[in-house]
Design a binder for these strands. Structure first.
Length: 301
DNA sequence: GCATGTCAAGTTGTG
DNA sequence: CACAACTTGACATGC
């Protein structure tokens, strides 16, 4: 079992930068591109540092934050890498990330944020989502990331119609996105059993989030969901990918959805132990939570 | 410096 | 109806 870190660190000195469209719009175009160039260069450099640190810590996967290149798909202040003064040096850094990750078997992934909804009935939302996915597909190719993980989106009163729209848009996505796209069960709407038929039909691997499953259960047990999700990966000869977190407020009274700082080892399903799989750890204490969990598992028995 | 409000974007459930 | 929650706070601004 390999563990994955999501986006940022708690203690390590890695700080990804960002900016706002509002601030950029106060600058001339040349000033915008200069600022964005520095920022994207810094973020690419930090990404290379990040995968090196991850490897040093014995962590086997890393989720890359979506806004690595902030506002790149924004309608007013958006840009292309070619537009940036340091564009070529940025490409070299991305290439270095790919080489390092490949050499040391670090699995890289993306998780587009909540604004990417390809099942929306609103065509503008879908168009924006496709633009964002095209950006992430290109970036994933550049850094050697194999996964772009999405939620199914809203229900809009009818899950089947929503999934039908998902299916149609999926068919029109560029190949570098489609080959990386995965679907994850969420904590309010779509369960593993909601998604499995679509995953089977479109050959989309299913990322099984056990915390979401516990918040939003279906008729499947954790063991069954694990096996059924595994099949969607193994059919393609790929290693299964899952998500794990612990509830900040515990499993008793209160909202179990917010994530705790650390992982309670009891929340790690028994049937995951010893499996060949990747488990992204969604915990506020970031790499510290992963280190502690690996330590806890070591000292069990 | 440091505190505070703001930041492109969607959808749902809760109080 | 406002707001939190979601994979994740960082930055701009004003004192």
């Amino acid at each position: 079992m390999r563990f994955g870190l999501c986006c940022i660190f708690k203690n390590e000195k890695i700080a990804f930068r960002t900016t706002t469209a509002k601030f950029l719009s106060s600058l001339s175009r040349a000033e915008q591109l200069n600022k964005l160039s520095d920022l994207c260069y810094d973020n690419s450099w930090n990404l290379l540092q990040a995968v090196e640190i991850v490897h040093r810590l014995g962590i086997g996967a890393f989720r890359i934050m979506s806004p690595l290149f902030p506002r790149i798909t924004h309608p007013e202040v958006g840009y292309r890498l070619d537009d940036l003064p340091k564009g070529e040096r940025i490409v070299e850094l991305l290439s270095a990330v790919r080489s390092f990750s490949h050499l040391h078997d670090i699995r890289l992934s993306f998780h587009p944020d909540q604004f990417v909804v390809i099942s929306s009935p609103d065509t503008r939302v879908v168009a924006n989502s496709i633009r964002e996915l095209e950006y992430q597909g290109w970036l994933a190719e550049a850094v050697g990331a194999g996964i772009i993980n999405l939620h199914a989106g809203g229900v809009y009163g009818d899950k089947l119609s929503a999934l039908q729209r998902f299916s149609q848009v999926f068919g029109d996505l560029p190949g570098n996105v489609r080959s990386r796209l995965t679907l994850e069960n969420d904590d309010v709407s779509y369960t593993v059993s909601d998604l499995l038929p679509l995953c089977d039909k479109l050959s989309i691997p299913l990322v099984y989030d056990v915390h979401h499953h516990r918040c939003n259960p279906d008729e499947l047990s954790v063991e069954e969901a694990t096996e059924l999700a595994a099949a969607t990966w193994h059919r393609q000869g790929r290693e299964q990918y899952c998500h794990l977190s612990s509830p900040k407020a515990g499993w008793g009274d209160g909202n179990p959805r917010p994530h705790a700082d650390y992982i309670n080892p009891d929340d790690l399903p028994d049937c995951w132990r010893g499996r060949v799989m990747t488990v992204d750890i969604e915990a506020k204490a970031k790499e510290l939570a992963i280190m502690r969990l690996m330590d806890d598992i070591c000292h069990e028995n």
